[in-house]
């Protein structure tokens, strides 16, 4: 306790304390109410995925019948909606585009951060401008291009689309590379290390967090994307990814029969994403603030 507080009149200190307590109580109330709002839909999703009765809602909160059949039928009843296939599609696309994107992004980030060459500033400006066009716009052209070379409605097209823009998403990684002291590079150069060597032996090992962040974001993207898949796949159900597939399940004509199964599918998609997200949470914060947290 500091001196200043000791000499405070007793009455005033008590009023501060009680005001403090009231403020905290108010905050607890607000937080609890908000938590309720935020958690209820999540709980609703979980509960519905185990509900035996079909339909988009019930007039009571807890289901009368609990069942696992929503989950099992996702994998067995695949005549109309082949969830396992969509899941594997998404996994395949995610793994491929994750590998390609990570490599491309890190290569570009290193180049812009460490190497100085004539067109550096020009290329960075072009990237900036290209990034300002709505991504959807280029997609239509890509769709026609894929159609012309016979690749439309294929998973390969999806992979190309997801990893094709990797050269634009270098900002976070570049920002991180920028903070690695240049003295390290210089020392290595004196020891006869080439720039290739510096990239592999110095930059990459000291930026594992950002490698992880880049890889995880790239991996998660295909699970969440909706618009690209629906344009490229049109009505080719077999090559859908989970997001568009699940969307089809709750369209007007299917929702009564498939709603609980949609919930089960959503839970299955959410699990890996949740795990990955928990892992990359702290990188996420560093990413969006561009390392500003470090001051």
């Amino acid at each position: 306790m500091t001196n200043a507080e000791i000499y405070k009149p007793a009455g005033r200190s008590a009023s501060i304390k009680s005001r403090e307590r009231a403020a905290n109580a108010a905050i607890y109330t607000v937080l609890s109410v908000m938590s309720l709002f935020w958690l209820l839909p999540v709980l609703w999703l979980l509960v519905s995925s185990f509900r035996g009765e079909p339909g988009a809602y019930t007039e009571y909160i807890m289901p009368k019948q609990w069942t696992l059949s929503n989950y099992t039928r996702l994998f067995t009843d695949t005549a109309l909606f082949s969830f396992p296939r969509w899941y594997m599609n998404t996994l395949f696309v995610a793994v491929c585009s994750c590998a390609i994107t990570t490599f491309l992004t890190l290569m570009v980030a290193y180049t812009y951060s460490r190497l100085r060459f004539r067109w550096r500033r020009g290329l960075m400006n072009i990237s900036l401008v290209l990034g300002m066009f709505p991504g959807f716009m280029s997609m239509i052209a890509i769709y026609h291009f894929m159609k012309a070379i016979g690749l439309d409605q294929s998973l390969a097209a999806l992979i190309m689309v997801y990893s094709g823009g990797a050269a634009l998403g270098y900002y976070v990684a570049k920002g991180f590379f920028d903070t690695i002291p240049k003295a390290l590079d210089e020392a290595a150069t004196i020891d006869g290390c080439t720039r290739n060597g510096i990239f592999w032996k110095i930059i990459l090992p000291s930026s594992l967090p950002i490698v992880a962040y880049t890889a995880l974001t790239a991996f998660i993207a295909p699970w969440l994307d909706f618009i690209f898949v629906s344009v490229i796949m049109k009505d080719n159900y077999a090559n859908y990814t989970v997001s568009v597939g699940l969307f089809r399940m709750i369209e007007r004509e299917n929702i009564y029969q498939y709603y609980t199964r949609f919930c089960a599918g959503a839970v299955l998609v959410a699990i890996p994403i949740t795990l990955l997200f928990v892992k990359m949470q702290k990188y996420y914060v560093e990413g969006v603030t561009g390392g500003a947290v470090k001051g």
Partner: peptide, 19 residues
């Protein structure tokens, strides 16, 4: 509690809420 909702894929929570 609040981060849990981020972890659920956005399209899932959006479709859920829209229904």
């Amino acid at each position: 509690i609040f981060v849990t909702t981020i972890a659920i894929p956005q399209f899932v929570s959006l479709m859920l809420v829209s229904k």
